[in-house]
Design a binder for these strands. Structure first.
Length: 554
RNA sequence: GGCCAGUUGGUGAAGUGGCUUAACACACUGCCCUUUCACGGCAGCAUUCAUGGGUCCGAAUCCCGUACUGGUCACCA
């Protein structure tokens, strides 16, 4: 019996050779500097903020260089798979306008020439490579049971030695070929282990694209590369084979992978693969109630879920802007200097990526979103808001559709000025800012009068104003002068400075009068420009006065 | 426990030996502007870069130790 016989016994059905496979995955025809990146999630059904960031960065790095971004599904751990888990991920990415050039495009379909893009469908490929490793003496069957493995670990702990399957602890490594063949023939189950040629006392260096040099001891662990439970590869092996075959140029992944780099390095070497470059991203963290930092969790943090932003109505572009600020700290400054340029003109830079896990800052996201919304035209706001309202606020959606011109006017208030108003952080904020502009909604308002609460006085001011002073045809200056005129007539100060000098001799001031009119007509003490509002609700003023009166009578 | 990474204000961070008595942005505080709110303007917010030592004319920046945080050591990714 020789290695070839052993390999045949371990992989009885595998007839293809490594050369056969390699031919099917030719080098990509791309010029120097063009990046091929990938997002490689397990099919868990949805994407959370941390993985969205990583997908976004992968996508952006590829696009910035005119390269290829693909989506590969890593389902070698079937326990993690969820029904429709792939389409969930595709939809979440699509919500943020991340569309893979290659890879899965639905639950079962894919596009691109380097597939299959689901690892469980690539089983035969991994077998071919594993078999060749066995033939070359770089892999062997391991028959150790879980109990045996636990035992050696306990011994290692007791002796304060490094934990793992290596050196003399790698029992099955020293099995002769004949012994191994015998066991297989007897039907004993086995995993395939990598036969590491490494020496723990030697050093290797990773040239990380964002962290620079990282030094490690060489790997000497005989890691499992094919599992006996389902015959599928482990991450380490699948990563090496797939990223080689699919010709990934830069592997971007979380920093939790740094410690296993020596394994991957060795695998690439022994398999004769050209190693891709690596960038190990900082994890996205949050502060929890106890005040400690921890990884953002899908389960515990609603704001970690991508759907949270969808429901809140944060514009997709605003989220992208925020993700870019986390990805590259110099982006904010760029944005300030180039407010009108498209995001695609900003190139992500590995050396500007944060090495420590950054805290996810919802406040900042809202701020970015607020600024972003304030810069939209009324039409853009309308077009973006409408689909959101359709999904989350049907009543408003109907009004929006039926009163488009009117809504555009409402959105235009204080929008087209040098520094537009910033009222809305997200689409779900908009209702509270515009509901009172619709007569359909303005029925039983709650009033926010504060300083002046005397009902008769309020009614008196309102009636006097609309009977004797208000004229919708007035321009803004005339309009405000009339308000001031009325102030003088009714015993209020039209000039704030005068009022401050001697508040006792007035009933109030022009601000109080404005507030009475504002609250009387909108039931809100804080609104955009009153003059503009009155012009828009002109047809409804009579009715609103009645509502005010009725409200006071009962 | 071994290995690896990280540590600059409330937050994201700039900074790679002198231009830094630490940029910018968010948040916060105060004042101003003002018919409300928002916007905007001005000012304030780390004498100090986890910590101890060293190198140097000079250190947040280089070296060593310590602490803390996170990761990893699975037939999970």
């Amino acid at each position: 019996m020789n290695l070839h016989d052993l390999a045949e016994l371990m992989f009885p059905g595998v007839s293809e050779t490594v050369e056969d496979i390699e031919k099917k995955y030719p080098e990509r025809n791309l010029s120097e500097g063009v990046e091929v990146t990938r997002f490689a999630p397990s099919p868990t059904g949805f994407v959370h903020m941390g993985s969205l960031l990583s997908a976004f960065e992968d996508y952006k790095i590829a696009k910035d260089s005119g390269g290829v971004f693909y989506l590969r599904i890593e389902d070698t751990d079937q326990k993690r798979s969820v029904e429709n888990g792939i389409s969930g991920i595709i939809n979440d990415l699509a919500d943020f306008e991340i569309y893979p050039d290659e890879g899965m495009i639905s639950e079962t379909e894919s596009k691109g020439n380097y597939g299959p893009y689901i690892q469980s469908e690539r089983k035969h490929i991994y077998e071919v490579y594993a078999k060749s490793l066995v033939e070359r003496g770089y892999a062997y069957p391991c028959f150790c049971t879980e109990e045996e493995l636990n035992e050696t670990r306990e011994i290692q702990e007791l002796n304060k030695e490094r934990i793992g399957y290596y050196g003399s602890y790698a029992k099955c490594r020293s099995l002769t070929i004949d012994e191994a063949c015998e066991k297989i023939k007897n039907g004993e189950k086995f995993v395939v282990r990598f036969k590491s040629p490494g020496d723990f006392n030697k050093k290797i260096v990773l040239e990380d694209r964002m962290r620079g040099k990282i030094e490690f001891p060489e790997n000497d662990l005989d890691v499992v590369i094919i599992k006996s439970s389902d015959g599928l590869p482990t991450y380490h092996f699948a990563h090496a084979v797939d990223d080689h075959l699919m010709h990934t140029t830069t592997v971007m992944r979380g920093e939790e992978w740094i410690p296993s780099y020596p394994i991957h390095h060795q695998l690439f070497e022994v398999l004769g693969f050209k190693e891709p470059r690596f960038a190990h991203l900082g994890l996205v963290m949050k502060i929890d109630e106890e005040g400690t930092r921890r990884k953002l969790s899908k389960r515990k943090d609603p704001e970690a879920s991508v759907s949270f932003y969808h429901e809140k109505g944060i514009p997709v572009n605003a989220t992208k802007l925020y993700l870019t600020t986390i990805a590259n700290s110099n982006f904010e400054e760029w944005l300030i200097n180039n407010p009108d340029k498209d995001l695609s003109e900003f190139k992500l830079d590995f050396t500007k990526m944060s090495e420590s896990g950054s805290l996810f800052d919802v406040e900042k996201l809202f701020n970015i979103s607020k600024n972003y919304i304030s810069r939209m035209t009324s039409e853009e706001l309308y077009d973006n808001y409408l689909p959101w309202a359709k999904e989350f606020d049907n009543e408003l959606y109907e009004l929006l559709v039926n009163n488009k011109d009117y809504v555009l006017k409402v959105f235009s208030i204080e929008r087209y000025q040098e520094k537009p108003r910033k009222d809305y952080s997200c689409y779900s904020d908009i209702r509270s800012g515009i509901w009172y502009m619709f007569k359909e909604l303005y029925t039983k308002p709650t009033y926010e009068f504060q300083k002046i609460t005397d009902k008769n006085e309020i009614l008196n001011v309102i009636e006097t104003y609309f009977n004797d002073y208000y004229d919708p045809g007035d321009d803004k200056d005339t309009w405000f002068n009339k308000v001031k005129e009325m102030c003088d007539k009714l015993g209020y100060a039209s000039n704030m400075k005068d009022y401050k000098k001697d508040p006792e001799s007035y009933k109030g001031n022009v601000a109080d009068i404005s507030t009475i009119i504002r609250v009387g007509m909108t039931s809100k003490s804080q609104t955009p420009d009153l003059y503009e509002i009155l012009k828009l609700i002109n047809d409804d003023i009579e009715r609103r006065i009645e509502i005010l009166k009725n409200n006071y009578e009962c």
